[in-house]
């Protein structure tokens, strides 16, 4: 399938390969590094975004959902061990993001700007659904982002159920972040040299 410069060579049978090739083994740490640096970069610019899943998106697009899921998982483990130990439990969310991006990309949902938007909403929904119970268990429903938590506090103050308040808090933050990250990943993927894309696809 080829549309607007993005070609998806994968198929539904090959994308779930669990065998890690040497190319994938070296791609995953790079993706984790990109996640880490992109997050630090967003924090440095004081953006209302995390960008911490950019590497996971790219790993899923280049080497499939398994590589994306492992990138997301290791990213949270490393982040949890070095900066915020509670982040470790959010590795479940990162695994889900990696899988959803990989599947959507493989099915051609990253081929044009409109489809990327739909994909981003699905990814944000997945992320919010999985993160909400974790937020309730570990942070009493909060996300730790001041303006999202202000919304959460307002909803709790109006006696709205904690699960709905926490989901809204998470989804409002996720939708913005995941849409921006999806477009950045889409744009960056189009800029990657074809030999690079082929190398990771051929060596899966």
């Amino acid at each position: 399938m080829k549309e607007n410069g993005i070609e998806n060579k994968g198929n539904r049978f090959s994308m779930w390969k669990l065998h890690l090739s040497v190319a994938t083994v070296t791609l995953i740490p790079a993706a984790v590094g990109i996640n880490y640096v992109a997050k630090a970069f967003a924090e440095g610019l004081k953006l209302p975004l995390w960008l911490g899943s950019l590497g996971t998106y790219l790993a899923s697009m280049l080497a499939g959902p398994t590589a994306g899921a492992i990138s997301g998982f290791i990213n949270n483990i490393i982040y949890g061990l070095t900066l915020s130990p509670v982040s470790t439990v959010y590795s479940i969310t990162s695994i889900a993001i990696g899988i959803v991006v990989g599947v959507l990309f493989n099915r051609g949902w990253f081929t044009n700007a409109k489809r990327v938007f739909v994909s981003a909403i699905l990814i944000a929904l997945t992320s919010a659904i999985i993160s909400t119970p974790l937020n309730v268990i570990f942070w009493g429903g909060q996300t730790g982002i001041p303006w999202g938590d202000a919304l959460f506090a307002g909803m709790i103050g109006n006696h709205i159920n904690i699960w709905i308040a926490s989901f809204t808090d998470e989804f409002v933050l996720d939708i913005l972040d995941k849409v921006v990250v999806a477009y950045i990943a889409f744009f960056i993927y189009r800029q990657l040299p074809q030999r690079m894309i082929n190398y990771f696809k051929d060596n899966q």
């Binding site: 040497v22 190319a23 070296t26 791609l27 790079a30 590094g33 960008l51």
Partner: peptide, 25 residues
């Protein structure tokens, strides 16, 4: 302006990182 400034830094960074991954592989 900040969002626009992301790509000119991230694109070369990501291409260089993936290039180094290929070399490492």
């Amino acid at each position: 302006q900040k969002v626009r400034s992301i790509l000119p830094i991230l694109i070369p960074l990501i291409i260089k990182t993936f290039d180094q991954s290929i070399n490492r592989s």
